[in-house]
């Protein structure tokens, strides 16, 4: 048993250490369990090191990832992440049309995992036939499973083992859920920089607040079975970027776009709105987007954090 739930806010999530990919070739490089444990111990993450010691050997890791992401999907279903993304994406698509963007709108989910968001939007998003939904992830096991579920349910969307920012046909809109906090330091700005060519981006992530770490711990222990899910889920809330940091990174990296926060204000009762959104809009999109958003526009803010 680990001695105390020691976590390091700047330390890695275990899943970040388990998969090592060459970002160009997307070749998977071998990862030694001992090295993962040593890294977590070196960062003072006793809970994480304890969990990592109990991980299965190589060969079972991919199946573990699929199970972990399925548990995560269950949480996203409960917290209505699909509805939340649709509430922002549907007005954005209308705003793109209103501002003269004709033809197909290509929406690319960055780090889509099992592709829940993309599959949900394809099943229930009602975004229209001219919206193409594509999920990208480096993890072939997750993309393979996402593609299988897409096929089984006959959904109109696609999945690729690919770098979302180097697709032959670039995205009109980049989206993600629960991805931003994985990028630390300069890599956060770099993540935004790679989206300069898009018309817009909508990224949802956990909103940091004084209640988020405790709530996340309780919730992940209550809802998830895999110890790695409980650890990484809890750490996600601890590591979540404040809105100000996200705004600063996005504005610095994509100066051409107007960057706004959605639900960025923490408020007195942060458990009502547990996620925040970072929205980037190409010039001329803000007006139509705010109009299409309707009453939800009141939850947009330019500077809140």
């Amino acid at each position: 048993m680990h001695r105390g739930p020691a976590v390091n806010p700047e330390g890695p999530e275990i899943t970040d250490l388990l998969i090592d990919m060459d970002p160009r070739s997307l070749e998977r490089r071998p990862v030694q369990k001992g090295a993962v444990v040593a890294e977590l111990e070196a960062q003072g993450m006793r809970w994480g090191a304890w969990v990592a010691r109990g991980l299965p050997e190589r060969g079972e890791i991919d199946r573990l990832f699929v199970r972990v992401h399925a548990e995560m999907q269950r949480l996203w279903e409960e917290f209505l992440q699909g509805e939340r993304m649709r509430a922002l994406l549907a007005p954005l698509v209308k705003a793109l049309r209103a501002s003269g963007h004709g033809g197909r709108v290509r929406v690319v989910d960055v780090g889509c995992g099992l592709g829940y968001l993309v599959r949900w939007l394809a099943a229930r998003g009602e975004l229209g036939a001219e919206v193409e939904l594509l999920g990208c992830d480096y993890n072939g096991a997750l993309i393979g499973a996402a593609e299988r579920y897409r096929r089984e349910e006959g959904l109109r969307c696609g999945f690729r083992v690919a770098n979302a920012f180097t697709l032959e046909e670039p995205a009109t809109v980049y989206i993600s859920t629960g991805v931003l906090h994985h990028f630390r330091g300069p890599s956060l700005a770099e993540l935004f920089r790679q989206q300069r060519g898009a018309q817009a981006f909508v990224h949802l992530d956990i909103k940091p607040s004084y209640l988020a770490p405790l709530g996340s711990l309780l919730f992940h222990v209550a809802r998830m079975r895999e110890p790695i899910s409980q650890h990484d889920g809890t750490l996600s809330a601890v590591r979540a970027h404040p809105g100000e940091r996200l705004l600063e990174a996005a504005r610095g990296a994509v100066p051409s776009h107007e960057v706004l926060l959605f639900d960025g204000e923490v408020g007195r009762l942060p458990i009502l709105r547990t996620m925040l959104g970072v929205i980037g809009l190409a010039p001329g999109l803000r007006g139509p987007f705010v109009r299409e958003l309707g009453p939800l526009a009141g939850r947009l803010g330019a500077t809140q954090g």
């Binding site: 209505l80 309780l218 809802r223 458990i271």
Partner: peptide, 18 residues
């Protein structure tokens, strides 16, 4: 709605499961 659902999940349904 979504806020009430979140409130129920975070403050009651999750903790009471535990």
């Amino acid at each position: 709605g979504s806020e009430l659902r979140t409130l129920m999940s975070v403050s009651i349904l999750g903790p009471l499961t535990l």
